[in-house]
Design a protein around this nucleic acid. Structure first.
Lengths: 231, 231
DNA sequence: CTACGTTGACTTGTATACAAGTTAATTAGC
DNA sequence: GCTAATTAACTTGTATACAAGTCAACGTAG
């Protein structure tokens, strides 16, 4: 069979990426292929394969004969990715508006984001997953798989930041409100309005997150410093 | 210095990609890491690095313990990439329309695509390069580098196809006419019209190319078959 | 002649060895 | 004590060795 087994390289890829997402590897941290290989009990070969993939995806950089580095947070680039997301999702809602009939997924999303009571709302960490689904489901509904793929890549890339978006109750409130409003505009076949609301929603999400990212990052760095000094 | 030397892996990457673009490697062709390494006089290590990169970019596939394959042409996927290009470039012209002042590049493009006389028009193979520049320069002018990067990736991916777009004189005529019309709409600050013309332009380019791709591909396969039988 | 099992060459996946270059600590000179 | 040169430990880039699986050709039984 040509069905891919799960390779060691894949495991390394997932592990290192998760380390970055969970701030076990902080932006700016340096490390070597040997380090990673030893920690995951494997040779440098699959490690390199995984790291080069992460490099192409923008998470790490290789310094010639001088180790690897987790890419420092570049707020300019993050802003551009948010902006690109807006463009893609706006294109999406216009596509949805042009469809002969509304895709079923809109009803499903409505059920999630317009709950009968506040009690039925999701909490904490699941809100982030639901939020990601909302946006990627919309894009997927437009039917262009390549667009979905690019959108997914961008979403992943922003996840390091977006994980901080739902620690505040007011952000959860806003998300429910804004998602519902976007769905309403779509149901009423007003793509221009949906596009406008979408842009505003993503912008405010970006702004809210930017505000707390640096602080949380500083905390993570502090934690790590204490771990090292106590060892 | 951390300035990257040109590595063997990079050379292999460029060479194999060029082989695909120039139909020396045809869609569906199978080959092994050893083949490539021998031909480029290097070991499998940098070859693998290059091939995995090409895999992530969608040009080749690895079959578990059974060689590599140039990805067969998937016309559905190509259509999706064209469609995605339209979405990105439409987003671009709306961005350009919202800028406080028109970027200088518009004047440069106008000079190229609205020549004083027919004699000043480019011919043959350079038209393709100019056409690629037209579209990527527009996107770049909007100022989002991440968007430019994605757009460039898509353009590269479509180059295998688009190289056939300018073999016919009527397509060159149409390209000059349509590019000029798009620029006019932009100069007159009518992004909606520019977007409309852009979509139509890319669509017709796609349609024209699709029509001749299969035939040219068949010819290339025939050529290769004769090379083999005469060897 | 056909169907099928066996075998052996070939393929990628992973580990290891070596080459080339970087970096930082240490030591010699003053 | 300080500066500078040397050196030794690391680092990635590439080549090679080995493990594990695939596949097609060939031979054999019927």
């Amino acid at each position: 069979m040509t069905l891919r087994k799960s390779s060691i390289a894949d495991r390394v890829y997932e592990t290192v990426k998760d380390d970055i997402f969970e701030f076990r590897l902080l932006p700016g941290d340096k490390f070597s292929e040997g380090d990673v290989g030893e920690r995951l009990d494997t040779s440098r070969t699959p490690v390199r394969q995984a790291l080069f993939r992460l490099q192409r995806e923008g998470y790490v950089d290789v310094l010639f004969r001088s180790g690897w580095q987790v890419k420092p947070l570049d707020f300019q680039k993050i802003a551009e990715l948010y902006d690109l997301r807006i463009s893609l999702e706006q294109a999406t809602v216009y596509k949805l508006g042009a469809l002969p009939e509304k895709p079923l997924v809109l009803r499903t999303l409505r059920d999630i984001w317009n709950p009968a009571s506040r009690a039925e709302r999701a909490v904490g960490s699941t809100v982030r997953a639901l939020d990601e689904s909302f946006h990627s489901d919309l894009v997927a509904a437009a039917g262009n798989q390549e667009m979905s793929r690019i959108h997914r890549e961008i979403t992943e890339r922003l996840r390091v930041i977006r994980r901080l978006d739902f620690t505040r109750e007011d952000r959860i409130d806003a998300t429910y409100r804004e998602h519902a409003a976007i769905l309403t505009a779509l149901e009423e076949n007003d793509p221009a309005l949906a596009a406008k609301r979408l842009a505003k929603h993503i912008h405010s999400s970006h702004a809210a997150v930017q505000e707390i990212t640096i602080e949380r990052l500083r905390e993570a760095a502090e934690e790590q410093r204490q771990l090292i000094s106590s060892a």
